[in-house]
Design a protein around this nucleic acid. Structure first.
Length: 571
RNA sequence: CGGGGAGUAGCGCAGCUUGGUAGCGCGCUUGGUUCGGGACCAAGAGGGCGCAGGUUCAAAUCCUGUUUCCCCGACCA
């Protein structure tokens, strides 16, 4: 591909609407264009990345004996009425009428369509187990799309559905899928972690989600540094059995960032009566302001305070010292404000009675169960450095994550409701057991960009890069440059290397900036200088390597470099 | 769905308070000078200000309605 013909303008200024790196770079780099809320058109670079990801996923699905199929985007509502989800799912499911006034839906997921396709096709136990999968556009009428390709209303997803004769077979297959998913993300060049999750509206029991840990993630993940414990904050009830119950001297409260201690004291009806001191921390691990109340009736030292909050969440030790000692005066909880400890949340929570104000709401344990007539507020459930419920070491870490994939054991929820049956060896009819497995392809592309970029643009892993090699022909108005670069382009293309050839007559600065934005991992620079020396300059997008190779045989050397980098990701 | 912000040239923005028929930077076109990290000079093209009403001699500027987008929160395979 010649860059002079590539559609999709690259530009210098960051669009005002973009907040996160992948959104900024994929907009600035001419990867895509916003069409509407949560809806994008893609230019060739983004489309090629998606195709690369799909190829990896397809390979792994085929290794699991998957059969690629195609299920519809638009389908009659009757299918969803069969499963009951036409009524149980809210406005996220886009409903509309066709010309005959028939109810239709846009597929936001395809369990119904998958069962519909499979139920007549596998009447005998001999077909089982089997798995079907597809790459298909999903439409979810999200209440709030955000972050470029991270959270779209219309997006590309690989979804797979497996059917089994019994639970044991599903579980064995599920384990294999889990391994396949680990490989998919590794091959795409990012590190993800799998965590057990809530099955949500999908029904069923066991589920895992695959998380890329990154600040811009929408999910909050709890990890243990000392063992393999990990959990989504959503299912924080798995954190139990906290130590140091009633004598914990510190209380941690998450608040909106604009909240001041004075407001909080007023809100909590706290009077300066010397039984409780407060310190303010600007941010905790999830980026929220944290206010810590120190009970005046128990001993606490600075070390313990810092451990409690987590030194790494507040790198400015000067400020830390200031806030630790800087609050103007001790405060007190009055008689109608009480401090309680909650075991299920592994930490002290502030509890107040009395006045309520907007901006705070309870997200923790059950108030009517624990303290009748109490008003609860936005308290942290766990914290950096908390005790791990699994290994009992104080090594809990909190991180944000982007969910790039998920897998579920569904049981017979859909096969029963939609009456899918097979005959066993005795001729008796049963509902097959189902599993489903999703990867957000467009979200994965953006996630890789989040994980792999520098100040200048994306650094695509070669396995999913839109092109493998980017030729920069500096001063291609000079005949020797133009000839050398064109020859290299032809040689590489002939050898099956995917090449983007910047054949424009523009300044080196423009050329390099565009190359950075396109993020192609290997760069070959041809210029009057390199031609004078009879070489081609090879460099890597991540700036880790630069080398001159002789112009003769340069194509072979580059091809080998491509192969080495690819092999590294496959390993 | 609650709160906040914003729709003016392809992109980023100014102009609106105090109405007079739209401007700046980048990009684009042409010519010339430059040339290894977003060059310079000169000459051009391109919008009628989200949409619909209203007030007025006159509306991007004032009023009413509406719609779209962005951010925070709630929600969420």
């Amino acid at each position: 591909m010649k860059l002079s013909k590539l559609l999709g303008a690259r530009f210098k200024e960051s669009p005002a609407d973009c907040q996160i790196a992948s959104h900024i770079f994929m907009t600035r780099g001419g990867y895509m264009k916003n069409v509407g809320n949560g809806i994008f058109s893609l230019y060739t670079p983004a489309k090629r990345i998606m195709q690369k990801i799909e190829a990896i996923v397809r390979d792994e699905m085929d290794k699991l004996d998957g059969q690629e199929v195609q299920l519809p985007v638009a389908m009659p509502a009757s299918l969803w009425q069969e499963s009951g989800r036409f009524d149980s799912i809210g406005s996220e499911l886009l409903r509309f009428k066709d010309r005959g006034d028939g109810d239709m839906v846009l597929g936001m997921t395809h369990e119904e369509a998958a069962v519909h396709l499979a139920r007549d096709a596998a009447p005998s136990y001999a077909f089982y187990p089997f798995m079907i999968y597809q790459f298909q556009t999903k439409f979810r009428d999200e209440q709030r799309a955000r972050g470029g390709l991270i959270r779209l209303r219309e997006f590309m997803m690989k979804d797979a559905y497996s059917f089994h004769l019994n639970q044991e077979d599903l579980e064995a297959y599920y384990e294999k899928c889990l391994d396949a998913y680990e490989r998919i993300f590794k091959r795409a060049g990012i590190d993800v972690i799998s965590i057990k999750s809530d099955s949500g509206m999908m029904g069923g029991n066991v589920a895992h989600e695959f998380m890329l840990l990154t600040d811009v993630g929408e999910d909050t993940i709890i990890l243990c540094d000392a063992c393999d414990f990990r959990s989504n904050m959503e299912v924080a009830e798995c954190i139990v059995e906290a130590p140091a119950a009633q004598d914990e001297p510190l209380i941690l409260i998450e608040t909106p960032n604009t909240t001041t201690i004075d407001q909080l004291c007023t809100f909590f009806s706290i009077q300066p009566q010397n039984t409780c001191k407060a310190v303010i921390y600007r941010k905790n691990a999830t980026g929220k302001q944290v206010i810590v109340f120190i009970r005046g009736d128990l001993e606490v030292n600075e070390t313990k305070l810092r451990n409690f909050i987590g030194e790494d969440v507040h790198p400015d030790t000067t400020q830390a010292a200031n806030v630790a000692y800087g609050y103007a005066g001790p405060v007190n909880f009055t008689a109608d404000a009480t401090l309680v400890y909650d075991r299920s949340l592994q930490g002290l929570c502030g509890l107040v009675t009395g006045a309520n104000k907007s901006g705070y709401h309870y997200t923790g344990f059950n108030p009517t169960r624990d303290i009748p007539n109490a008003t609860y507020h936005d308290f942290a459930k766990t914290y950096q450095g908390a005790i791990c419920p699994q290994c009992k070491v104080a090594a809990i870490k909190i991180s944000n994550g982007i969910e790039v994939g998920n897998i579920f054991q569904l049981g017979t929820k859909y096969t029963a409701s939609m009456n899918m049956q097979y005959a066993d060896a005795q001729g008796e009819l049963h509902h097959p057991i189902m599993g489903c497995y999703g990867v957000g392809i467009s979200r994965l592309a953006a996630s890789v960009c989040e994980a792999k970029h520098d100040d200048y643009g994306p650094i695509w892993p070669i396995s999913i890069a839109p092109w493998q090699v980017h030729i920069c022909a500096i001063r291609s108005d000079a005949p020797e440059v133009s000839e050398a670069a064109s020859a290299l382009y032809a040689d590489l293309t002939a050898q099956g290397v995917e090449v983007l050839f910047d054949d424009r007559v523009v300044s080196a600065g423009v050329m390099f900036s565009d190359a950075d934005l396109l993020g192609v991992p290997i760069r070959a620079t041809v210029s009057p200088k390199t031609c004078g020396r009879g070489v081609v300059e090879l460099s890597l997008r991540d700036k880790s390597y630069k080398e001159d190779v002789p112009m003769d045989g340069a194509a072979v050397a580059i091809k080998e470099l491509v192969a080495r980098k690819l092999a590294k990701l496959e390993a």
